[in-house]
C-alpha cells in the first residue's frame, strides 16, 4: 500500500503580481472532495491619500521557510485539503496585491479558520517589512508593528 503523502502548502515569495486564478485552479482542479474554498487577498492601501507606494523587504530563504512552517501547522490543525500562501516583495502601489492565502476544505469553517490563522501568524512571524513612500516625495519610514496583530495571533493559542 502506498504511504499517503504529507500535504504541503504551496508557498511562493515573489516580485511578480499574484495570479489568484492559477492558484485556485491548482487547489481545486479535479478535486471532487473539496467543498469549500476561501481566498484572502491583502492589498496596498493609500492611507487616505497619503501613501505613494510601499517597499516590501523580505529575508530570502527564511520567508519561504517560515510561510511553509505556518502553512503546515494550519493544514494539520484545521484538516485542510489544500493551502497556498503567496507573498510579494518589492515596490507596491495602492490597489496592488501584496499577499494571497487560499485554503480548501470539505466544509467551510475549516477553510475560513485556516486562512484566518495563516494571516494572523504571517503578520507577526513571517520576515517581511514595509517601508512607506509618501505622495509628497518623503520617505515615510518603516511601518511599526501593531499590538493588534499580536492580539489577533493570541486568540489561536491552545492550552
Amino acid at each position: 500500500m502506498p504511504v499517503p503523502s504529507i500535504l504541503r502548502p504551496i508557498v511562493s515569495v515573489q516580485r511578480e503580481d499574484i495570479d489568484t486564478r492559477a492558484i485556485v485552479h491548482a487547489l481545486t482542479d479535479g478535486r471532487t472532495d473539496v467543498g469549500a474554498l476561501v481566498t484572502f487577498t491583502g492589498l496596498c492601501r493609500d492611507e487616505a491619500g497619503r501613501l505613494e507606494a510601499l517597499e516590501l523587504e523580505h529575508y530570502p530563504g527564511m520567508a519561504e521557510a517560515e510561510l511553509t512552517r505556518i502553512g503546515e501547522e494550519a493544514i494539520g490543525r484545521f484538516a485542510l485539503l489544500g493551502l497556498a500562501i503567496v507573498h510579494r516583495y518589492g515596490r507596491m502601489e495602492p490597489s496592488d496585491q501584496i499577499v494571497l492565502v487560499a485554503a480548501t476544505s470539505s466544509h467551510r469553517q475549516a477553510a475560513f479558520d485556516g486562512a484566518n490563522f495563516v494571516m494572523d501568524y504571517l503578520k507577526t512571524s513571517a520576515p517581511f517589512w514595509k517601508k512607506e513612500h509618501g505622495r509628497d516625495g518623503t520617505e515615510g519610514g518603516w511601518v511599526a508593528a501593531r499590538d493588534a496583530d499580536d492580539t489577533a495571533r493570541l486568540r489561536w493559542k491552545q492550552d
Partner: peptide, 10 residues
C-alpha cells in the same frame, strides 16, 4: 544569524 525589527508583512 539574522537580526531584524518586528515583522510587518501581510
Amino acid at each position: 544569524i539574522g537580526l531584524f525589527p518586528p515583522m510587518t508583512g501581510g
